[in-house]
Write a protein that binds this DNA or RNA. Structure first.
Length: 81
DNA sequence: TTTGAGCGT
């Protein structure tokens, strides 16, 4: 299962997410897509934890919490479109 | 500011 994190601050880095979700379990994947035209962050990211129960805990715990100045959205990711 | 990528030797 992949976690989707939205409404991210532009100050947030891929490593920051790894540290944040690393509190719940081992981060096996983490991607933060950039806009290909501008090179800017797009304001969302994806994280995979090794343990599915840790993912569920992280989603419940981090949902809508203020992180780096913004209330982030955390949910189960949808399949890549 | 809210669902990613690979396009080639």
């Amino acid at each position: 299962m992949t976690i989707f994190i939205g409404n991210l601050s532009w100050d947030a880095e891929r490593e920051d997410l790894i540290h944040l979700f690393g509190e719940y379990g081992e981060v096996s994947k983490c991607s933060m897509p950039l806009d290909r035209e501008t090179g800017r962050k797009r304001g969302f990211a994806f994280v995979d934890l090794a343990d599915e129960q840790a993912e569920t805990a992280a989603i419940n715990d981090l949902q809508n919490v203020e992180w780096m100045g913004r209330a982030i959205t955390v949910r189960k990711a949808e399949p890549r479109r």
